[in-house]
């Protein structure tokens, strides 16, 4: 039983981190209509800045710089590339983002090489144990922080003018601009927010139990894609729920792999996508995606 609970706790905390990443995908998509395949390398950039700077300036200052740097990188990608595409087909933008991802990733890989850069977090390799359930301290903090961040996001989107303007622009950009909302600003805000969330997720993905920052971190961001898709492309709540589902299912699939041998090895790789496909078969627009308006 405590084994199950440990796996569950791990899955939930990992799922919340995936949620942070998936929410970034959603926000960029709703604010600028772009499938942001450069998200992984933005995440890696944030984590890389933290790892490089934590020595000279200390962990917390490095985290602030890393978050700001990733946000700024997002804003730059949007300003230089996305906005100039204007009304181009969304496919073009997605391919362009793949290109950006490869460029950033190549440069970061060149800088990191095959070293593993420690993230230098104060929680190190500590573990918390509550009644037989053990969880790395970093994961417990990540889970708590993710909940706080989601609360702040809720506040932003429901209670502040900027947030409501962002939602209005996402729902109907043409009408929003008739209301005086500048789409260039809501777009920039979306990219900045997504970058910041990615950097936070990156710090925790590079913390214990992972060894530190390596190029593989950018790829692990893509584990959030099934979460994004199954939650419904344009739903923040869906992205969070999707992250939790994928996190728990992955942890349980790996944890019980020896009991599921008839399905073959390496289940953890396959299961997120299998779950995504199953959900999409039942609900083609995802768990929380906008279906066609029902009221006539």
């Amino acid at each position: 039983m405590s084994y199950f609970l440990t796996q569950l706790a791990n899955g939930l905390s990992y799922g919340l981190i995936l949620g942070l990443i998936a929410v970034g995908f959603v926000i960029v998509f709703t604010s600028t209509g772009v499938l942001n395949f450069a998200h992984g390398s933005v995440l890696l950039t944030g984590a890389y800045l933290v790892a490089v700077l934590q020595g000279p300036v200390g962990f917390w200052a490095a985290v602030v710089v890393g978050i700001a740097g990733a946000a700024l990188l997002g804003v730059l990608i949007n300003a230089v590339l996305v906005r100039n595409l204007a009304e181009a087909n969304p496919g073009t933008a997605a391919i362009l983002m793949l290109g950006v991802d490869i460029l950033l990733l190549t440069e970061l890989t060149r800088r990191i090489g095959n070293r593993v850069l420690p993230i230098g977090a104060p929680w190190g390799a500590d573990v918390v144990a509550i009644g037989g359930v053990t969880l790395p301290t970093s994961r417990a903090i990540a889970a708590g922080l993710a909940v706080v961040v989601f609360g702040l996001l809720w506040f932003l989107f429901a209670r502040t003018g900027t947030g409501v303007a962002m939602r209005a622009a996402a729902a109907d950009g043409d009408t929003a601009s008739l209301m005086g909302i500048r789409l260039s600003r809501t777009g920039a805000a979306g990219w900045a927010l997504a970058g910041a969330l990615a950097a936070i997720a990156g710090v925790f993905l590079a913390s214990f139990p992972a060894p530190g920052v390596g190029p593989a971190l950018a790829i692990s961001a893509f584990a959030a894609i099934p979460a994004w898709v199954l939650g419904g492309f344009d739903s923040v709540v869906g992205a969070i729920v999707g992250g939790l589902i994928i996190g728990v299912v992955t942890a349980l699939a790996v944890g019980y792999e020896s009991h599921l041998h008839f399905l073959g090895r390496g289940l953890g790789e396959v299961v997120p996508y299998a779950v995504m496909i199953l959900v999409l078969l039942v609900r083609p627009s995802g768990l929380f995606g906008r279906a066609e308006a029902v009221r006539v």
Partner: peptide, 25 residues
């Protein structure tokens, strides 16, 4: 300010949020 043809309200936003979006400036 223009009220567009076909109303074009923000369907997923509440009434209060629609008004808030109108007051962005």
């Amino acid at each position: 300010v223009q009220v567009p043809e076909g109303r074009r309200i923000f369907r997923d936003l509440t009434v209060a949020e629609n008004l808030r979006a109108g007051a962005s400036t």
